[in-house]
Amino acid sequence: MSTSRKVTPVATTTLTPQARALRSTVVTKAVMAVSGLIMVLFLIAHMYGNLLVFGGPVMFNEYAAHLRTIGEPMIPYSGVLWVLRVVLLISVVAHVASVVKLWRRKVGATGTGKRYLSSKRKATGNQMTYSAFTMRWGGITLLAYVIFHLLHLTWKVVNPGGAHEPYDRVVNSFQQWWMVLIYLIAMILLGLHLRHGIWSALTTLGANTSAVARRRLNLAAIALAVVLVVGFLLPPFSILLGLVK
């Protein structure tokens, strides 16, 4: 009996099945999953940093400064930060690139027009979570927010409330109700994105192996999403309510 594989004569004949599989939707999804999880790790660290705002201006500013001096003198000033930035940038690019690739596949598979004409069809499907429903447009909105966020706190192009030192910039900004509102919307979208994203990433990487595993993965995704959203929202609301000055 023969177990040798024959490759179907298509445009990609020259590739081995393994090479073709590396370009498959499953591997693309895995890229999205891994890049997403890297960003989740970053968010956890980021949230930790944000919470230091409760320690007062000295602690917070020292944290911001220390980010640049980690590893000195073995590593040059801002070295670690740059490595992190590069990893993050690659993750963002990989995440977005895989989204674009898979989105195009989706459009290819289901067409561009209205797929089903029945007005009784629920936009959110039969049972998918609301968070799953928000993934794509929510993701794009989040990307827009991230750019705004960088313009605001990293590149200092947007200056609501002025000031230069990190602590003052943060506090001044979030004394503006509309900044808190933008932040709140972004964090809710982030929470929804994480709720489905974390579950989906782990599933894509093969962790969903039983009904029990499925329940656990969903719980973990919800817990992590809630912790991150609450953690991120604590400082701005504390500032807005005057608890942190």
Partner: peptide, 18 residues
């Protein structure tokens, strides 16, 4: 490998675990 490659070849979309 072969089944996923064929799945993609047929033009089906990807899974988003929903």
């Amino acid at each position: 490998l072969d089944m996923v490659n064929q799945h993609d070849e047929e033009g089906f979309g990807n899974c988003t675990n929903i």
